[in-house]
């Protein structure tokens, strides 16, 4: 019983805290834990480009349809703060002029919202039926004639016409939910005195060429940091 009381008390303490939904993700222990990392002006930065599978597992929204997702963690120097702004980040295809700044959650949610199904679209269901039986014979109840028995059969087709259901993630509520998810998981902006992490979404064309790499450019205190993403 004491254990149950402890759990109840712990949940009572935690649930109000959970109402304040934290933004971003949990940063790894150090910037070194990220595939690409650097330190500039005392601020360490760790970056990783999520694979489509990782994006699929990390988001309920189908973010793979619109953009590349980069997880970024910033580690300010001790007793100092760092200003985090999405405008400080640029993702560039290595060796080209193709580059993009992070997209906002609202814009992405609008992109990801699927078109609703037209009310004129209908689902048609066809149900064929067949029956086979055997009659032993006797007298026709109407004409009174004697008739022999035999196998009889019948066939028919049932057709049902109805409206089709809405396509997934097409309503305005879905759009708001996607916007909420993308916003809550994105890198929090503002002054940070402790490590922060989150996702940035870049609307760049996807390529299946594995040789293509990307570079993340980050401006910190007027200095440019370039990280090559594997």
């Amino acid at each position: 019983m004491k254990l149950r009381i402890c759990i109840a008390i712990a949940l009572m303490c935690v649930l109000p805290l959970s109402a304040e939904t934290p933004r971003g993700t949990v940063p790894r222990a150090t910037a070194d834990r990220y595939p690409a990392h650097a330190t500039q002006s005392g601020t360490a930065i760790g970056v990783t480009l999520l694979t489509p599978d990782q994006v699929h597992n990390a988001f309920a929204s189908d973010v793979n349809r619109c953009c590349l997702v980069v997880e970024i963690a910033l580690y300010p120097a001790k007793d100092s703060t760092v200003g985090v702004s999405l405008n400080d980040f640029v993702l560039r295809v290595t060796g080209t002029d193709v580059a993009a700044k992070p997209s906002g959650a609202k814009v992405l949610a609008a992109k990801l919202q699927k078109k609703a199904v037209s009310p004129h679209d209908r689902d048609i269901t066809i149900s064929p039926t067949t029956n086979t039986g055997y009659e032993s014979g006797g007298y026709d109840p109407v004409t009174g004639q004697r008739r022999s028995g035999g196998v009889y059969s019948s066939a028919g087709v049932g057709v049902g016409v109805g409206g089709s259901g809405p396509s997934p993630a097409s309503s305005d509520v879905d759009r708001n939910t996607m916007e909420l998810e993308l916003g809550e998981k994105s890198l929090p902006e503002g002054a940070a005195s402790a490590p922060v992490a989150g996702y940035l979404y870049f609307s760049l064309p996807k390529t299946k060429d594995k040789k293509v790499t990307h570079q993340l450019e980050y401006m910190v205190n007027g200095n440019k940091v370039v990280l090559t993403l594997p």
Binding site: L3, L11, S61, P168, A169, S170, S171
Partner: peptide, 21 residues
Amino acid sequence: DLSVSTPGAMPFHQRIYVLSG
């Protein structure tokens, strides 16, 4: 906010996003 708890174990907490269909 999804929470799952059982006696003798640490509670599980996760924020989930539900989309229609």
